[in-house]
Write a protein that binds this DNA or RNA. Sequence first.
DNA 1: CCTATCTGACTTGTCAGATAGGTGTTGGTG
DNA 2: CACCAACACCTATCTGACAAGTCAGATAGG
Lengths: 269, 269
Amino acid sequence: MKALQKRIGITQDTLAQSLTERFIFGEEALDGLMPSTRILAEEYGVSRLFLREVLAGLQRQGLIETFPGKGIYVRKPSMLNAARNVHTTIRQSTATARDLIEARGNLEEQCAALAAERATTEDIAQMEFALKALDDANGLIPMAQADIAFHSLLAKSTHNPVLQIMFGSITTLAFDTMLRSLSDPEIYKEGAPLHYTILKAVKNRDGLAARKAMSKHIHLAEDSYKNDLDCELREIAQRIVKDVLQSSLSIEEILSSALKDYSVDLGQS
Amino acid sequence: MKALQKRIGITQDTLAQSLTERFIFGEEALDGLMPSTRILAEEYGVSRLFLREVLAGLQRQGLIETFPGKGIYVRKPSMLNAARNVHTTIRQSTATARDLIEARGNLEEQCAALAAERATTEDIAQMEFALKALDDANGLIPMAQADIAFHSLLAKSTHNPVLQIMFGSITTLAFDTMLRSLSDPEIYKEGAPLHYTILKAVKNRDGLAARKAMSKHIHLAEDSYKNDLDCELREIAQRIVKDVLQSSLSIEEILSSALKDYSVDLGQS
DNA sequence: CCTATCTGACTTGTCAGATAGGTGTTGGTG
DNA sequence: CACCAACACCTATCTGACAAGTCAGATAGG
């Protein structure tokens, strides 16, 4: 009987929502440490196991982090968390490389234009650093890491969190396409100088030039795809995992370390 | 000892990834029914509880759905799932209404332009239906439902899954702003005809006109915000929940039912 | 008095076993 | 043939327990 009342009254979703509202958005999130599972379970009148499953959901969402022996901590927002679901949904859909490039092109053009208006000197210095690293990089993965870092820094330079998060949500997939573009030396030689054109336009506060250079850059990547342009992203993602990185590292980890190395904190500013 | 082996060998994340790769993307997802928890737990050499927590994570991610007495079913991709994490991340950030409108404007302009190129007669019929419903609607919520449906149908008409999912990922927040815009009768009277201007441009296959009309429409919404333009979205979201819907229904449910009513299946086409 | 160590009270992580309640099938009865 | 009851599955959840990590404070030794 008791169990029935609970199931009707408190579902996992409602509890998750309640906890989120309270500790993620509410005021009790300030110190970042949540009460222990025993206390929370008693407070909401559910068993510790039930609560644990809800917490597992929040953890998978990237909202909290648990440490054995210490407690449950509220996690700072990260756009890679936002990315995960979008990435999965896109991979489940019938989206092709063409679809991705089309969407990404428009978004990045806007980012470039706005970055030209708003980039700080520090933003520009970071982008210069990333481009230098891209020139010096050896190997496909370090190159792709520097490349994605530059584009992410451009998004960061808009100082618009929504744009940053939207860009972040397709970063993983964009990374896949970069691994592919960079593996073609001819395409790379043609596309690399455009990075500097973009940066120069940003320095000159010339939004239109930045937008145009970005447009050219993206559509160059489009050309490199050739026949695979209408290949579904799910296939490309699978192929990348098999061919490029036989390593134990996942795409997500490689990306995450790149963004950390180049100190891109999307969604935090 | 056994427990130790498990903890080292299989973490929740690796198991989640393995299950996703197998049942969401793999071939075993075809029928959509997963093996029972007992079988899966035995297969991976973990306890049922451990498996359940992983499944709770996948369920919260919207990848699976469990039915007591029936089993675990793979869920079709829905862009509202993709939306949840993005929505949460944006609400955690310092994003303001201005940031959202800026990002949304650019995205929707692209959608309008592409819809003009690609909308089918069925797409157009659906949009007409939504606009008619918007005219006839009584009350704030039905109006906002018809409004968001029209914009979603426009995104659907691009026939680009990536754009659809990107638009979907900010739908929840866009819905909040609509609830606000529609509550101002003056703004509504000025903005409503623009819907028809957009649709007309789509019918005429005039991408540029569609883009311009959408731009005007979005920036009109911008004006309606006035002082709240630099108000953080987290505050707006909280206010909406308190003021507009004291009801037990959540924003997510209202949105979801609207998209179902107007048969918007983003990310499925 | 200071420091190093150890104990105990926390924490999360995990498990086995039991019960409740839903769903669909199967076989027997009218 | 139709109906219905028993049964075999399923998920959902709880109880109670134990392992293992962490940290603060007490305690013993220098």
